[in-house]
Design a protein around this nucleic acid. Structure first.
Lengths: 123, 123
DNA sequence: CGGGATCCTTTTTGATACTG
DNA sequence: CAGTATCAAAAAGGATCCCG
């Protein structure tokens, strides 16, 4: 009787499968996009900002900070004037790319079937 | 001057890259899990519920309905008593599996490096 | 068994304005 | 350029009870 499960108040992120780990990284809004745009090499803040048309500075910053914390990407401040900051994928970040591309591949399939009017009716 | 971009009030889901399409499908909490557990064949509601330990009925239902609407999976009511409902991947749903598996693969890598204490510090 | 209906809390996102 | 601060809105998620 000593250890008793609390039924309610489940732990923050309950599920224990191999999917969660990755989803917690790429799950945020715009995150896949950031990774996508870094796949070709380093990008600066303002480049990313225009790569990703509707993202706000705030959200972009937030996402970048998260990814940095998680060691997915590397932030390098170049001592130029005006200041510029370059973001690039870490080695670990590179390992996410196959997943990102698999996701993009699905996106392409969807777009194609929409055109051909096989319309998997996504909306 | 006829067509003028509204700068504010961005559309519901702004970003226009091939990633969005798929992320809108698999992005919900537990959604990857559901897909993951359906990859081996049809599952019933209660099976999924116990496949995915901490999910609530409500959320599970919500996700399943969404996926059904998006034609990712098929819901079949079996006229048994007590009633049972079987969910399975549609043909389109099967096309998501590679992405799901790529995501899971990343999850495995992460877990492995945690064990070996390469710790990519994900928390 | 397989949910639906409510209600409520947390988390996330965004708009806007400002700064070194 | 590369952010920060603040505020507000909205989704998303969860708890609980109920039902055929």
């Amino acid at each position: 009787m000593a250890l008793r499960m609390r039924k309610n108040q489940s732990p923050p992120h309950p599920y224990p499968c191999p999917l969660t780990e990755c989803m917690r990284i790429i799950g945020g809004a715009w995150t896949p996009n950031i990774l996508w745009n870094l796949r070709g090499g380093p990008r600066r803040f303002s480049e990313l900002k225009s790569d990703i048309p509707n993202v706000s500075s705030k959200v972009l910053t937030t996402r970048l900070r998260e990814l940095e914390t998680k060691h997915v990407l590397i932030r390098e401040v170049k001592p130029t004037s005006p200041p510029s900051v370059e973001y690039s994928l870490s080695e670990f970040g590179e390992e996410l790319i196959p997943a990102i591309e698999a996701i993009a591949a699905v996106g392409h399939k969807i777009k194609r079937s929409r055109k051909n009017n096989h319309t998997p009716a996504l909306d």
